Simulated assay, not measured.
Amino acid sequence: MESATERVLSLENVTMDYGGKRVLNGINLEVFKGQIIGYIGPNGAGKSTTVKIMLGLIDTYQGKVEIFGQDIASGDPSYKRKIGYVPENAEAYDNLTAIEYLVFVAELYGMSREHAEEKATRLMKEFDLSDVRNTRLSSFSKGMKQKVLIISSLLHDPDLLFWDEPLSGLDANSMMVIQEILVQLAAKGKTIFYSSHIMDLVEKISNRIVLLVEGEVVADGSFEELQEMSEEGTLAEIFNQLTGFTDHKNRAGKFVSIVQEEQTYA
């Protein structure tokens, strides 16, 4: 792992309101080269909003965001060439074949068609997708499409990755391969923002975990450091404690009791 000395990204007092509601409430964050950041929080905590701001997809925020030393509010989009992104709900062009889609995305990043096609073909082979190289994405399973999206985020060899629920729909073997890809990319100095609800996975691969609750960072540190500030053991248990959600057993019990109520038949 690279030493955490080269700052890749910083957020300074980032605040945002949407529809009269405060979505982000003064986010401060510094991220360094080679870190795998597990970016977690309940639904609606502001995780996707923060990522979209850093990607330049939302500009109605207050505060300062710097990526690769550049204030993204300057209007210069060149920093985006060094970013890869897998959104939680991606809209791929389903009428394109897998190779057509990958070449299209690569060309948006400035790669030549010939290089993009050759590199995409090799990457698809490693994900066991060679046989469907020329098949339309509309016929792909969720897991197959997710592999294509992951390849599309890496084709141009970015320095900063934003992956939002990247393992959605993948089988256990593919998940293991992609976990190892993340670890090896970080070891080569790539910086990874990783958002997932699979807590044991975040616990396993992240060297730093940032927990967002109601638009505020409530925890930021290694898994071991988070353990020290909590009475709980696993990341899932720490998550529940720090987000104030301790009612899961009681709620589950009520749900099951309703399911098992005596039936009334027509």
Rank of each mutant, 00 (worst) to 15 (best):
G215V: 02
E203Q: 15
N173L: 13
F239W: 01
L29V: 15
T5E: 03
G221S: 10
R113P: 00
G69I: 06
L11W: 08
H197I: 10
E126T: 13
D247R: 10
V183K: 10
I36Y: 05
L226M: 09
R251C: 03
T15A: 01
R22A: 11
F104A: 00
T246A: 06
E165C: 03
G189V: 15
E114S: 12
N28Y: 07
L167E: 11
M1C: 10
E232F: 11
G189E: 08
A106F: 00
I192D: 06
Y79P: 12
A4P: 09
P77G: 15
Y93G: 07
Q179P: 00
V103I: 14
D17C: 12
S141I: 13
L161E: 12
Q241P: 02
T234K: 06
E114Q: 11
L137Y: 01
I181N: 07
A219D: 07
G253V: 04
K190V: 14
I181Q: 11
A106M: 01
M1W: 09
E117T: 09
P42M: 08
L108H: 03
R208V: 03
A116H: 00
L102A: 02
M175S: 15
I36S: 05
M111E: 07
E231P: 04
T246S: 09
V148I: 15
Q146N: 04
E237R: 05
K119A: 13
G34L: 09
Q263L: 13
R22D: 05
E214Q: 14
D200P: 07
G41C: 14
R113E: 07
S112L: 04
I181W: 12
P158S: 02
S10P: 02
H156D: 10
Y194R: 02
G221A: 08
Q260I: 13
K145I: 02
V218A: 07
M199K: 07
E180N: 14
E30Y: 03
S196R: 05
V210P: 04
D128I: 01
N173Q: 13
Y194Q: 10
A252C: 07
I238W: 07
I258W: 02
K204W: 08
I209T: 11
D59C: 04
M111P: 04
E237P: 03
M199D: 12
G244E: 06
G221Q: 12
G84L: 01
K254A: 14
P87H: 09
Y194S: 02
V148L: 08
T97F: 08
Q241T: 13
P166T: 15
V103C: 00
R113V: 00
G44W: 15
D131S: 11
D164T: 10
T121N: 04
L9M: 09
V65S: 00
V103Y: 00
T60K: 10
F193Y: 10
H248E: 10
G26Q: 11
F245W: 11
I205K: 05
R81E: 05
T191Q: 12
Y39S: 07
V8C: 01
E66T: 15
V51E: 01
K52L: 06
R136V: 12
N25Y: 13
K125W: 03
V210F: 03
I67W: 04
G20T: 09
R81N: 05
A187M: 13
L170Y: 06
L170G: 08
L185G: 11
T50S: 02
L160G: 06
K21V: 13
D171L: 09
S139R: 08
R208F: 04
N28I: 10
D157W: 01
